[in-house]
């Protein structure tokens, strides 16, 4: 049914669930301890950078999924193309970097808003297997000046 060169679709969803938790904890701590929030979103930014550069399978959560989670699950019904989740990691990186800069420089509300956007995307991915960044991609292309 599908080619061999795919990844288990539950991998990116597991990664998104961890991403969600990291951003949620960062948001909860952000008012009292913005520096701690900056460290958390900074770590997440590094994860995203690895995911965007090398693929979601290579992130720390991707490796945890492969070595600890996947062996306990039944084999996937279908494999998935790794390109969409990798693109989503790049989108996530932008939001994580802005959130980190906000928390680190005292622009806490800015950090909170961007962490909030990241939470929306991570939740949709983890709970519904829905890739928000992927969908924004076509809308973004459509906005570019018409040329043909």
């Amino acid at each position: 049914m599908s080619q061999q060169s795919g990844i288990d679709p539950r991998g990116p969803r597991f990664t998104a669930a961890v991403t969600f938790v990291i951003f949620a904890v960062a948001l909860l701590l952000s008012d009292a301890q913005p520096a701690v929030a900056a460290v958390l979103t900074g770590i997440q930014a590094v994860f995203f950078a690895i995911g965007a550069g090398l693929g979601v399978q290579k992130t720390p959560t991707g490796l945890v999924f492969r070595s600890l989670v996947r062996p306990r699950l039944t084999p996937p019904a279908e494999l998935e193309d790794p390109a969409p989740p990798r693109f989503a990691q790049a989108v996530g990186l932008v939001f994580a970097v802005v959130a980190t800069l906000g928390f680190a420089t005292g622009a806490v509300l800015l950090g909170q808003v961007f962490a909030g956007f990241a939470i929306v995307a991570a939740f949709l991915n983890a709970a519904f297997a829905f890739c928000l960044g992927c969908e924004m991609y076509l809308l973004g292309l459509r906005l570019r000046p018409a040329r043909g």
Binding site: L27, D31, G116, I119
Partner: peptide, 8 residues
Amino acid sequence: MSPGIVIL
């Protein structure tokens, strides 16, 4: 409630 929780 603090803004962080509201946004979450």
